[in-house]
Computed example of a mutant assay.
Amino acid sequence: MRALAGSHRPWWTAYGFLLGLTSWLHEFAVLALAAHGLTLWWSRAERRSVRRWAIAGTAVVVGLLPLAVISAGQAEAQLGWLGRPSAGAWLLAAGLSAGAFVLCRLLVRTGRPGAPALTRVALPLLIAPVGLLMTASLVKPWYVDRYVLYGMTGLALPAGAALAWAAEESRRLATRARLLAHCLAAALAVAVLLPWSLQVRSPESRKDDVAAVARAVERRTHPGDGVLFMPSRRREWLLSYPEVRARLDDLALARPPGPSRTLQGTERDASAIRRALLSSDRVVALMDPAGQPLDPYAREEVKRRVLATRFQECERVRLHGAQVVVYVRRGAGPCR
Rank of each mutant, 00 (worst) to 15 (best):
I273P: 03
D281K: 10
A32W: 12
R171F: 11
P195H: 07
V210S: 12
T175E: 12
A187H: 01
E313K: 13
L19Q: 04
A117P: 00
L138W: 06
R268L: 06
L163Y: 09
R109A: 14
W11G: 09
L251H: 06
W41E: 02
R206V: 11
A254R: 10
A211G: 02
E204V: 07
L21I: 01
A270P: 03
A185W: 11
I127E: 02
P129I: 08
D249C: 03
R268H: 00
V328D: 07
A75E: 07
E27C: 12
V139P: 01
V102I: 03
L163E: 04
P66N: 03
R176C: 04
R255I: 06
E169Y: 08
E313F: 04
M152P: 01
Y241V: 04
E46N: 13
L163F: 05
K140Y: 03
K140P: 00
Y143V: 14
S23N: 04
G57C: 13
V325F: 06
P203D: 15
C183L: 15
A75K: 08
A59S: 03
F101C: 06
P195D: 04
Q264L: 15
Q74D: 01
T266E: 06
R329T: 05
V50R: 15
W41K: 13
H26R: 10
S23P: 07
V217Q: 15
V325I: 15
G73D: 08
A276W: 00
V190L: 14
S240H: 12
D225L: 11
L307G: 15
C314A: 14
D208S: 13
L96P: 01
L248W: 09
K140V: 07
P223L: 13
G80D: 02
V148A: 15
E236F: 15
L184H: 11
L31Q: 11
G265L: 12
W24Y: 08
A98E: 01
R2E: 12
A89S: 14
P66L: 01
S43F: 00
R112N: 00
I55S: 03
A166F: 10
V102R: 07
V130T: 10
A89I: 11
A115N: 09
A72C: 00
V324M: 08
R215Q: 09
E236N: 10
S137I: 11
V326G: 04
F311D: 04
A72Q: 05
K140H: 01
A185N: 04
F17W: 03
Y241Q: 11
A89F: 10
V192L: 11
R51K: 11
T262Q: 13
P257T: 04
A276R: 13
R274W: 09
D250S: 01
R52K: 15
A308T: 11
A136R: 06
A332P: 14
G16M: 00
A45Y: 15
A177Y: 03
W42L: 14
L277W: 07
P195G: 09
F17Y: 02
W81Y: 12
S280G: 06
H320N: 15
F28Q: 08
G63C: 02
G20H: 03
Q78R: 10
L133N: 00
